[in-house]
Simulated assay, not measured.
Amino acid sequence: MFTGIVEELGTVESIEEQGDAIRLTLRGATVLEGTGLGDSIAVNGCCLTVVATGSSADGDAVDLWTADVMQETLDKTSLRGVAPGDRVNLERAVTVEKRLGGHLVQGHVDGVGTVVSRTPSEHWEVVEIALPVPDERGGLARYLVDKGSITVDGVSLTVVEARDDSFTVSLIPETLARTTLGFRGPGDRVNLEADVIAKHVERLLAGGYLTQKDS
Rank of each mutant, 00 (worst) to 15 (best):
G85L: 07
K199N: 03
T158S: 05
D63Q: 09
V12M: 02
E136R: 10
R178H: 15
G10N: 03
S56D: 14
V51Q: 07
E17Q: 14
V127M: 09
T114M: 03
L24F: 04
G81T: 13
D58H: 12
S156A: 02
V159C: 07
K98S: 15
G107R: 04
T66P: 13
L74S: 00
R87S: 15
A57W: 13
P84Y: 00
S215M: 15
H108C: 02
I129L: 01
D165M: 10
T114S: 04
D86M: 01
R80E: 12
I15Y: 02
S40C: 11
G182Q: 00
D75I: 09
G36N: 12
L24C: 03
G111F: 03
T53R: 13
G36K: 11
G154D: 07
G45W: 00
D75E: 15
S170M: 11
T53A: 02
V43L: 00
G34L: 12
V169A: 07
M70Q: 13
N44F: 06
A29L: 12
G19Y: 03
V201A: 02
G54R: 05
A42W: 04
S14E: 11
A162H: 05
L64A: 04
Y143F: 07
K98P: 10
L104E: 08
K98E: 15
E17R: 14
L48M: 09
L205F: 12
S78D: 11
W65D: 01
A177Q: 12
G28P: 04
F183K: 10
G81I: 12
V31W: 04
E161Y: 12
G111Y: 03
R23V: 15
S149E: 02
Q71F: 11
F183S: 14
H103L: 02
K199T: 03
V196L: 09
D20H: 03
E122P: 10
V94W: 07
G19W: 01
V152F: 04
S166T: 00
G208K: 02
L100K: 10
A29D: 14
L205K: 14
G185N: 13
E193H: 07
A141D: 15
L181E: 04
S149Y: 07
L100D: 08
D110K: 08
V31G: 05
E161D: 14
D164C: 10
F183C: 13
K98C: 13
V31E: 00
T114W: 13
G28S: 06
D110A: 07
C46A: 09
G102Q: 01
E7I: 08
L9E: 10
D75M: 11
V160R: 12
V105P: 06
D60V: 12
V43I: 09
A29S: 13
S215F: 15
V62K: 03
T49Y: 01
R80W: 11
I5M: 06
L210F: 10
E13M: 11
K213Y: 12
T73P: 05
E17D: 15
W124F: 14
L171H: 06
P134F: 01
V6D: 03
G107M: 05
V201N: 08
R27Y: 03
